[in-house]
C-alpha cells in the first residue's frame, strides 16, 4: 500500500518535471536557453520515473522473493546513471557545436567565448 502510493508520487513528480521541460523547449527564445529546459528538467524527471521502476522492483522482490525483480531494479538503477551521464555530455556537445557553427546566444547580456575566439 505504502509502496504503491510512493510509486504514484514519484511518477507524478517525474511527469511534472518532464512536462515543464517540454513547455520550456517551446517558450524559451534561443538554442542555449532551450537546452537548459531540455537537459535539466528531462534528466530530473526521467530519474524520478526510473526511480518508480526501482521502487516497484524492490517492493515485488520483498513480497515474492522472485529474483527477476532484482534484475529489473538493478537495470533501472544503471539506466539512471547512464541517463545522467549521457544527457550532460550530449548537451555539452550540442552547445559546443552550435557555438562553433556561429549560432550566437540571443538575447544575451555578455558573451565571453565570442571575445576569446573571434
Amino acid at each position: 500500500m505504502i509502496a504503491e502510493m510512493l510509486i504514484v508520487l514519484v511518477l507524478v513528480i517525474g511527469t511534472i518535471f518532464n512536462a515543464l521541460g517540454v513547455i520550456g523547449l517551446l517558450r524559451f527564445p534561443d538554442i542555449y536557453t532551450r537546452m537548459h529546459a531540455t537537459t535539466k528538467a528531462t534528466t530530473f524527471g526521467s530519474i524520478f520515473t526510473s526511480l518508480a521502476v526501482v521502487i516497484y522492483g524492490f517492493w515485488r522482490l520483498f513480497v515474492t522473493a522472485d529474483s527477476q525483480f532484482l534484475t529489473l531494479a538493478i537495470h533501472a538503477i544503471i539506466a539512471i546513471f547512464a541517463l545522467a551521464f549521457t544527457n550532460a555530455v550530449s548537451s555539452h556537445a550540442i552547445a559546443r557545436a552550435a557555438h562553433r557553427m556561429g549560432v550566437r546566444p540571443i538575447p544575451a547580456v555578455c558573451d565571453r567565448l565570442e571575445e576569446f575566439k573571434p
Binding site: L20, R27, D30, A37, A108, V109, C110, R112, F116
Partner: peptide
C-alpha cells in the same frame, strides 16, 4: 519556465 524571467549570457 513559468515566469520567463531570464537574463542569459556566456561567462568564463
Amino acid at each position: 519556465v513559468i515566469t520567463m524571467r531570464i537574463r542569459p549570457g556566456i561567462i568564463r
